[in-house]
């Protein structure tokens, strides 16, 4: 997985690319470290570049959400591809995350 972070003053946009799966550990740790510097922001995870997510990847998003909530920020999942959205649906991720199609 690769990621890019951009801040526009109000929001933080995180573009994810590749697979967010059991092997994405190093990259995600880097992302968590970077996101910790933003307090009280709305964070958008742009998922259109994500080709696959598994339950481990989803678990990492839950960890990020918990950490960001402590910093007063909240997370929105934006534009997942159909297959990634299927995974979000199956795991009832909408109960926890704001999801924008």
């Amino acid at each position: 997985m690769q990621f890019r972070v951009k801040e526009d003053g109000v929001n933080v946009h995180v573009s994810l690319e590749g697979q967010l799966n059991f092997a994405a550990n190093e990259d995600f740790q880097g992302l968590l470290t970077q996101l910790c510097t933003y307090k009280g922001k709305k964070i958008f995870f742009e998922m259109s570049g994500l080709s696959h997510i598994d339950s481990v990847g989803l678990g990492l998003l839950y960890i990020a959400r918990e950490d960001m909530a402590e910093a007063g920020s909240d997370i929105t999942l934006s534009h997942p591809r159909d297959n990634v959205y299927r995974m979000l649906e199956l795991t009832e991720a909408h109960k926890t995350f704001d999801i924008q199609r």
Binding site: S55, V56, L58, G59, Y62, T91, A93, K95
Partner: peptide, 15 residues
């Protein structure tokens, strides 16, 4: 639904 781990087999069973 907000579990951070241990979902894999449940998903497989569902599908």
């Amino acid at each position: 639904s907000d579990a951070k781990s241990g979902r894999g087999l449940g998903l497989i069973r569902k599908i």
